[in-house]
Design a protein around this nucleic acid. Structure first.
Lengths: 382, 382
DNA sequence: GATAGTTACATCAGATCTGAAGTAAGTAGG
DNA sequence: CCTACTTACTTCAGATCTGATGTAACTATC
């Protein structure tokens, strides 16, 4: 549990999605001894998170007892905060998304106000949705470095005025429930790791308005010393030349391959666009300038990722964020990676989109709170 | 122990170097509970690795029992295999180097022959040296990717004909002792981590004839999926243009910043040189072309490291290998890192040379075997 | 020189995890 | 319907680690 923050959650996920339904299945899929599974499921049964409902078909021996997740136990709220909007969703305790909605939210204001507005938005969505059980916690992904231990925003290049702001405390006051916060790219990575095979090393990249990445090793999210691990947006790339970046430096990847950069580039060329989403829609419509720009962004990102892949040697590279929706973008990234990485590093490397598309961040934010919720549930139910 | 391969070794290191002499000291320095230290020291005392010799000064209470390492328990042999030479050393069980020697060794031949010659060289050195106790094991660092689990050479760009060769087995037959093998950059990293503060994340770079790096997180060496993690030598750098690399690709860092590249560059300019060592000596003598070349190599490496540092966000960046001996090289790397990294990533980042200079690989190779030796000693002495 | 406070170390009980053995409950074949 | 084999799950003992408590041995103070 402690050595795998997503341990119990992955177990529930497997049960809920019928990838594993009996204790033996779980042991096999998770690569853990049956005794360990037996103890853990027992704890979850006692806590009321799991229930048993009858028996399955025999495979030549004793029939397995069928496990299922007790949906009535409750749900959590997850949110993925963007520059202009916030995506809000409810997840059941197995980490499955029950309901999603998107609301406008301007984060370029006084943090306290934003938090209040955010809380109201969540309550609104909650009133509309019909989620089973009571709400157990809230997880939020922010578009910038977060000090997870302290629950504060570290250095918000896209969130001016938020420096050092104690978001977690502010949110807890509004919700009076467990609250967990982290960086959006990290949570993208965490969400994918829960649904993926255990023990694999994942490099998950969020290519949206900004660019970020998260690394999951052996089920653990690696956050680095200052919690800024995974930053690849300020790597110098030759084609960026001397273009100034929000970080104060010049020639960063972000100035040529981020959604924000694409918007700027296309506007320079006289294409009337305002958001990353519009860029993607325009490219999808076959607009030549937009398509070329998206493809170039993929090549640039791929070049940078090649360095990171050679260095960290992951099992999978997963791409999320708005740009990853484009086939041309994905192809460009793949091409650059295969061309520039060592054969040994790419031989069995899986390069793919994140499983949950635009909702991937929500799955991760949900996973982060759920981990706390289960710890609490098991501790108290003993 | 299991979660920190250098656990016992670090403990012994602290005792031997008088950084910690009593159990309470150890607990404080290692950040572990006293009870754990008590149990571990007891096991080491029983195994005969540690001894108690009298008591220390009181600090206002009960006098501490002084611990010391039993040098008579034995020693291990460590080797750092280079392209043309092999560096051979003996380390006591605290991981301290007792004796070093360097011998010529041509690895561009049939692996079996090389191993035989290597074993003979070790025995020669051993005959000359007067090391306390018996030999307990052998650790060897190779200049290429090693499959540590299987004990084989993976893909030896600098060791043609070694592909898949079972070095560990071959060595074990010669020495009839525990043998441990790994990549040289990995062992450089491991060696530094034992002597450094526990729990820190270290990015250790070997800049010699080739370029490699190793990452240590929370005392654990990260080897990646295929055991090729840490490769940064085949990243594309703009100044390398279309220069062909041994990896089959073009424009790699290795073609401009490695010792081999410097030799080639300077020879093109009419400077008569053959080895990386000569390049460094020439630069040290103030030869302008050599100095410029070394400095440029540092800048190139620094640019690439900036990406890796932003991504992995370590506590320390440590440089080893022949090039790191140059002040100009170090300054260039530092400069590039500070210029290109995020302020958050460099704010408390330590950038330095490896503690043990040319012997750093030996410390790591020794640490790797010693870990096995202690496991064995404790298991049998029970 | 009794008392209180400090420091160092040992020991133990509780928690977690896991391998091995045990129990339960089926199928298949005669 | 009895025996042998499978499969599924439980239980238990042993290992490791650690927080809490206990013991030992000293210093300082009145």
């Amino acid at each position: 549990m402690a050595d795998d923050p997503a341990g119990l959650l992955r177990l529930l996920w497997l049960i809920a999605h019928e990838h594993a339904v009996s204790r033996v299945d779980l042991a096999r899929v998770l690569g853990l001894p049956q005794s360990t599974i037996s103890v853990r499921t027992q704890a979850l049964l006692t806590a009321g998170v799991l229930t048993e409902h009858g028996e399955g078909r025999s495979a030549g021996g004793r029939r397995p007892k069928l496990l299922s997740v007790n949906a009535g136990f409750g749900h959590v709220w997850a949110a993925d905060v963007g520059s202009r909007h916030v995506r809000i969703g409810a997840l059941d305790i197995a980490g499955t998304l029950l309901h999603v909605d998107e609301r406008p939210l301007d984060i370029n204001r006084e943090p306290g106000e934003v938090v209040t507005e955010f809380a109201a938005a969540v309550r609104e969505v909650a009133a509309e949705a019909d989620c089973p059980g009571r709400s157990l916690g809230v997880g939020v992904a922010f578009p910038g470095p977060v000090d997870v231990g302290a629950g504060t925003i570290t250095l918000p290049s896209r969130m001016p005025g938020w420096r050092g702001f104690a978001v977690r405390e502010a949110l807890r006051e509004h919700f009076e429930q467990p609250v967990a916060v982290d960086n959006d790219a990290n949570l993208l990575a965490l969400g994918e790791s829960v649904a993926g095979s255990p023990g694999r090393t994942l490099l998950v990249v969020k290519a949206g308005t900004g660019i970020g990445s998260g690394l999951v090793m052996a089920g653990r999210l690696y956050r680095g010393r200052a919690g800024v691990a995974g930053d690849i947006s300020h790597v110098r790339v030759p084609v960026a030349g001397e273009r100034p970046c929000t970080c104060g430096n010049r020639g960063c990847l972000e100035t040529v391959a981020s959604g924000a950069a694409l918007v700027a580039q296309l506007r320079e060329q006289g294409v009337d666009l305002e958001s990353t989403a519009e860029v993607m829609a325009t490219a999808e419509d076959g607009h030549p300038a937009a398509t070329t720009a998206v493809r170039r962004a993929g090549l640039q990102l791929g070049e940078v990722l090649a360095t990171v892949v050679n260095f960290s040697n992951p099992d999978e590279v997963l791409l999320g964020g708005a740009l990853s929706g484009s086939e041309a973008f994905m192809a460009a990234v793949r091409g650059a990676l295969y061309e520039r990485c060592l054969p040994l590093a790419t031989r069995e490397l899986r390069i793919d989109r994140v499983r949950f598309g635009a909702d991937a961040g929500l799955y991760g934010a949900g996973a982060l709170v759920l981990d706390e919720v289960f710890d609490e549930a098991i501790r108290s139910g003993r």
